[in-house]
């Protein structure tokens, strides 16, 4: 098991959002987090990556307690969080954005250029855009950049928050393919997706979250056949 979240409670100031959340991600798995808007999916990712404080409960990453660790410590340990809404640096170039992904790691030049080549192999368009200001790119390209920037810290676990939101079907397909490819390189993935159908196609397992609680979990195949899931999330 690479990540384990036990009875986690978290929120914003006095607003209690997450209630006794327990989830696990195994080595090399894609785990999907499904739930309506406002259910607390992004909040859970933020609690794991140290952006918001944890009120109660524990987060363990590769047998290390990272509950309430600072974000820089958590990135260094090998968790990379690609946030909702991309949060790229629009006034910086694509290259500068990518280099910031390596900020907390002291890397040799060769290692960095190897990483850049890896990124180009996933998203060839970024190589063409390298010296362009990130803010001038299309939404799809910005999402690719956000994922690429997250990969620059060489994570063992990638937290992806709605990577396909608002993107054209073709781009969505590219991104889902990349996620699958990343799994084959040994990166574990915790994926939040609105596009539940597609997400369950590529995920091994999923958790369903409703108003801050996990209400169901199971492997993707089971969940796809679950009548309630079909009705609520798959629109059947």
């Amino acid at each position: 098991m690479i990540l384990s979240v036990n009875n986690l409670n978290a929120g914003y100031g006095r607003v209690h959002v997450l209630k006794d959340i327990s989830i696990e991600v195994n080595e090399g798995e894609i785990v999907c987090l499904v739930g309506a808007n406002g259910a607390g999916k992004s909040t859970l990712l933020k609690a794991i990556s140290g952006i918001i404080p944890i009120m109660q409960g524990r987060v363990t990453f590769r047998n290390l307690d990272i509950t309430n660790s600072r974000p820089n410590h958590i990135v260094k340990e090998g968790i990379s969080h690609v946030p909702e809404g991309r949060q790229i640096f629009g006034s910086l170039t694509v290259r500068q954005n990518l280099l910031l992904g390596t900020y907390i790691r002291k890397m040799k030049k060769e290692e960095i250029s190897r990483l850049f080549n890896f990124i180009y192999s996933l998203f060839p368009i970024l190589e063409k855009r390298l010296y362009q200001k990130a803010g001038t790119m299309s939404g799809g390209e910005q999402q690719m950049l956000a994922i690429a920037r997250g990969l620059m810290s060489q994570p063992k676990l990638l937290l992806l928050d709605e990577p396909s939101l608002g993107l054209a079907p073709l781009v969505v397909e590219t991104i889902l393919n990349v996620i699958q490819h990343l799994k084959s390189t040994g990166i574990s993935i915790l994926l939040v997706e609105q596009n539940v159908n597609a997400a369950l196609e590529i995920a091994d397992r999923a958790y369903i979250i409703e108003t801050g609680r996990i209400i169901t979990t199971g492997n993707s195949k089971e969940l796809r056949e679950n009548d309630e899931i079909k009705r609520c999330y798959l629109g059947m």
Binding site: S49, N72, V75, P83, I88, F89, L100, I104
Partner: peptide, 23 residues
């Protein structure tokens, strides 16, 4: 310099910057 660029990143998007491990 990477420190200077990190400071610009912080100014533009503090959330994005802290996710990069920038303080």
């Amino acid at each position: 310099t990477s420190l200077g660029i990190a400071m610009r990143a912080c100014a533009e998007n503090p959330l994005g910057a802290s996710l990069m491990g920038i303080s």
